[in-house]
Amino acid sequence: MSIEVKSFDTLRQASEVLGGSAQYIAGGTLLMRKVNYGDQSFNQLVQSTDPALKQIQSQGDEILIGAGVTMSEIMQHPQLQFLGEVARSVGGPAIRNMATIGGNLFAPRPYGDMATALLALDANLHWASGQQQSLEQFLERSDAARDIVHSISVRQPPTGAFQYLKVSRVKPKGVSLLTVAVLLNRENGRTGNVRIAFGGMAPEPRRAMAAEQALQGASLDESGIQRCLAACTEGMAPADDSLASSWYRNEVAPVYLKRLLLQRS
């Protein structure tokens, strides 16, 4: 099978030809695997040289990140240091030079570490068509209309409010067994606004809403977080795969969440 590659100056033009047998290619780390293995479900690759894909811009404490920005570029950018640890946890150095933040939102489990972090940070997606949507809404609807994410906007968290942990069997580089990201604002020693997101605990990165509620106003100590930990796997559907059983993931998710929550206090 031969593949046709189409290049467009703008994402808007590229998005108009998508669908059917045409796939948008970003860093290619997942899509080129399919090409190499003779995937028959598409025969056109659509790419764009739109400079907007590479932009990183801040407006106040909100930062707009072009969907084509790579993990390495995130690690090097002074304003994206809060995502540096997350970017560093994706693949090895060569993958990080290729893998884009936009592509990560579409990566099936066990991938999607950046998407998990962005879900906790309540990121918004800006589509080439001009539409906007929260990442959370996008993840909830697996049948999302085919368009291209143009950029991702995210609010810089207050110092120390964002925590991230990726659990993998192989160090320093391995795929995620599960990933946890927490955004936690504190008010007078108690927890204020909380968002907890898990990767690897459902087909897509998912918020642990019951756990978030249980943590609201709690004190950040062993007994204060008990209810939150007990509720954290509610609504999850962890995979049974070669990395771990779903039973195991359910057992260890609260353990890692606890480590993450207590390491801050």
């Binding site: 080129m32 790419q47 060569a94 030079n97």
Partner: peptide
């Protein structure tokens, strides 16, 4: 492996390591 997992195809593109099996040649 043709999947970016093994690293045997690593080359430098503008000085940075990338996996040549996952790079679209025309890029």
């Amino acid at each position: 492996c043709g999947q970016g997992t093994c690293g045997a195809c690593t080359v430098l593109i503008n000085g940075e390591p990338q996996l040549s099996c996952l790079v679209l040649a025309e890029r």
